[in-house]
Write a protein that binds this DNA or RNA. Sequence first.
DNA 1: AGTGCGAATATCGGATACAATATTCAAGAG
DNA 2: CTCTTGAATATTGTATCCGATATTCGCACT
Lengths: 227, 227
Amino acid sequence: MTLNVKATNLGVLSSASEVIFGSLREAIVDGALQDGDLLRQDQIATMFNVSRIPVREALARLEEQGLVTNQRYKGAVVSSLSLDEISEMFEFRALLEGELIRQAVANIRPETLDEARRHAEDFATETDSARWAPLNRQFHYTLYKDCDRPYHLQVASSALDKVGRYLRAQLVLTDGFLRARTEHAGILNAAFARDAEKAAELTRAHILGASRSLTTFLQREKVGSGS
Amino acid sequence: MTLNVKATNLGVLSSASEVIFGSLREAIVDGALQDGDLLRQDQIATMFNVSRIPVREALARLEEQGLVTNQRYKGAVVSSLSLDEISEMFEFRALLEGELIRQAVANIRPETLDEARRHAEDFATETDSARWAPLNRQFHYTLYKDCDRPYHLQVASSALDKVGRYLRAQLVLTDGFLRARTEHAGILNAAFARDAEKAAELTRAHILGASRSLTTFLQREKVGSGS
DNA sequence: AGTGCGAATATCGGATACAATATTCAAGAG
DNA sequence: CTCTTGAATATTGTATCCGATATTCGCACT
């Protein structure tokens, strides 16, 4: 007989370094920590009430993910992306997410479609701009859910993390939100129609359009700050 | 005036943890460490004559790369891939490397073409099967060199690392080497002809063909070992 | 005042030491 | 003999401490 209690897997409970890693990652992804910010091991250790050892492991992980850069004896800085790097990241996302939705739509479940529609509505009706980015992400990744390509998903997600800060700017500081709203509707329609190719093409265009609007915005901003 | 000496950037000189990370990664990628092997911190620390601290940072990095899995208080094991995961990795590579060569061929330099031809010849004439995998890699990545997509390249390389062990088996234990030789010639021809689409299609077929031959081989082996 | 040099401070990489958890193994109950 | 249980051992996670390197600041010199 087996014990009839739901046992949570203690083996995966967070160690300090994992908690710190997750917190720092989140802070970087959604912009609480900005490009070029210096991360002092001591300071972080104090914040979390631990020694520097788990902090260093978290920073090593972050560096491996490309979110910070470590310079020997100098410290870790939040990685910043050049305009070229940003647009490459968006091209990468277009390639990968296009493939994801193509595969997903091919065997998408009705429940998934409904869930995606709900997320699209939530996004469209949200007035708090701080919540646009997470809702946007939820919409897209719900649509990718049935693609049965866990590695593709993980890599796409990691790429999205790296441009998370910039995407937020694109939604809030340009006409990104408005355009996203209509483009989401198009993608959703294609998914409901089970038209994988169209969904893929629209997703690619959605991402590349966001890239263009973001790069022109950043270009302007850069020039502006120079004056 | 600037000092006219080529100064190597001392800031990026390896710390212990980086050296350990690199060594372990190489050992995993080319099969010296096998699926499921347990990595003991103490043992590794003794091998490198260091304490466990840098070892732990190296293991954290490896886990972030997906090459090992850490279980709290239990240790790190070399990640093993299921057949499904392996074939997903090859699909991913086909998608990405197809794009890489398409972009690269579009603005490939003559020197690069020559270098690729040399690598193709080296590969084709190599009799030591242990050297097939690195030469194969050199050939392909030389062709990708001019793609001007550093992030794409890095992700592709990371994916290749994850299946490095299996690719080696595909080359050595199946007819992989012979097929690769002729398929490389085709890809090289397309590159010389500046036919980006054809090079991309051949590269995709090259990778997916390797995947098929590998999965049928592993399938057979699994059944065989079960008897 | 401005520049170059050296000491003082800050910060990092790593070693050692200790606490928390897992694994092994032997002894006893059935 | 087999199974359970707890002590002994092994291994991991983290704290504290130390040497190495970078940065800052003050002082002498021009």
